[in-house]
Amino acid sequence: KKRTSIEVSVKGALESHFLKCPKPSAQEITSLADSLQLEKEVVRVWFCNRRQKEKR
């Protein structure tokens, strides 16, 4: 599967949402994915990776 490159504006939106809620529910992920026109899986993986980055 190809890597999904996420645009800067979209990254900003994800980042601000992450600061409010680092662990969104499935429903939040779905609505966020719909509003940003991304697949749910892409958003879910982005949050997983972002939480891991926070640990480092």
Rank of each mutant, 00 (worst) to 15 (best):
L14T: 00
L36E: 01
V8F: 14
I6Y: 07
S25P: 03
S25N: 08
S31W: 12
G12M: 14
K55T: 12
S5C: 13
R50Y: 02
R56G: 13
P22I: 03
A33K: 03
V8P: 15
P22W: 03
E28F: 04
E7D: 14
R51Q: 08
P22C: 07
P24T: 00
S31C: 13
R44L: 05
P24R: 01
S16Y: 05
V43M: 00
K53R: 04
V45A: 14
N49E: 14
S9Q: 15
Q37F: 08
K2N: 05
A33P: 02
S25V: 03
F47G: 03
T4W: 04
K55M: 11
R51K: 04
G12W: 09
E39I: 00
Q27K: 12
S5M: 12
T4M: 12
C21D: 11
A26C: 07
H17S: 14
L14S: 01
C48E: 15
I29W: 02
K53W: 05
L14Q: 02
E41D: 10
K53A: 03
K1V: 11
L32P: 00
T30M: 10
E39M: 00
P24Y: 00
E15S: 00
S25L: 05
R44G: 08
E39F: 00
A26N: 10
K23P: 01
S35C: 09
W46F: 05
K55E: 14
F47P: 00
E28K: 05
K53Y: 04
F18R: 01
E54W: 03
C48M: 11
S35W: 10
F47E: 03
K1D: 14
T4S: 12
L38G: 01
K53E: 03
F47C: 01
K11L: 13
K53N: 04
F47M: 05
K11D: 15
G12Q: 11
E7Y: 05
R51C: 04
S31H: 11
S25A: 06
E28L: 05
L38F: 02
K20E: 04
V42S: 08
A13G: 05
L36Q: 00
V8L: 13
L19E: 12
A33Q: 00
E39N: 07
S35H: 12
K1L: 04
H17Q: 06
L38D: 00
A26Q: 13
I6M: 11
A33H: 02
Q27H: 14
E54D: 08
A33V: 03
E39S: 11
S25F: 01
R3S: 13
L38C: 05
T4I: 14
K11A: 10
F18N: 02
R44Y: 05
C48P: 00
Q52R: 10
F18P: 00
A26R: 09
A13Y: 09
H17A: 15
K2Y: 11
R51P: 02
E39T: 08
L36Y: 09
W46Y: 03
T4P: 10
D34W: 15
R50Q: 08
S25I: 02
V43F: 02
E15H: 02
R51D: 05
E7N: 15
R3Y: 13
K20D: 04
P22S: 07
E7K: 10
F18S: 02
L32C: 00
W46I: 01
D34M: 13
I6Q: 07
K53G: 10
I29C: 03
K55N: 11
D34Q: 15
K20M: 06
E28G: 05
Q52I: 09
R3Q: 08
L14A: 00
V10A: 12
R50E: 05
I6S: 11
A33F: 03
V42G: 04
L36A: 01
C21A: 06
S5E: 15
S16L: 08
K23H: 11
A26V: 11
A13C: 11
V42W: 09
S31V: 12
T30L: 10
A13Q: 13
K40Q: 14
R50L: 00
E15I: 03
V10H: 10
K40I: 07
V43W: 02
D34G: 10
K11H: 13
S31F: 09
N49A: 07
L38S: 01
S16G: 07
L32V: 06
P24W: 02
K2T: 07
L19P: 01
R3M: 13
Q52K: 12
V10Y: 05
D34A: 14
E28R: 04
K55I: 12
R44F: 04
E39G: 06
D34C: 12
H17N: 07
I29H: 02
E7V: 07
S35F: 07
E39Y: 03
V45N: 12
A33C: 05
C21H: 10
E41N: 11
R50F: 00
I6F: 04
L36K: 01
Q27S: 10
V42R: 05
V10M: 09
L19A: 11
G12I: 15
T30S: 13
Q52S: 09
E28T: 10
L36N: 04
C48Y: 14
S16R: 11
K11Y: 07
V42T: 12
K20P: 00
L19D: 09
K53C: 13
S35T: 13
Q27T: 13
C21W: 04
R3N: 15
Q52T: 13
L32Y: 02
R56M: 15
V45K: 11
K2R: 08
L38I: 08
E54Q: 08
Q37N: 10
S5A: 12
K11M: 11
P24E: 02
P22N: 05
S9G: 14
L32R: 01
H17K: 05
K40M: 12
W46D: 06
K23A: 09
K23Q: 12
R56H: 11
V45R: 06
E28Q: 05
S35P: 00
S9T: 14
R44P: 02
A33S: 07
K40A: 12
K53F: 10
T4V: 10
R3K: 14
Q52F: 10
Q37T: 06
Q52H: 12
E39Q: 15
N49F: 04
H17W: 12
K55Y: 12
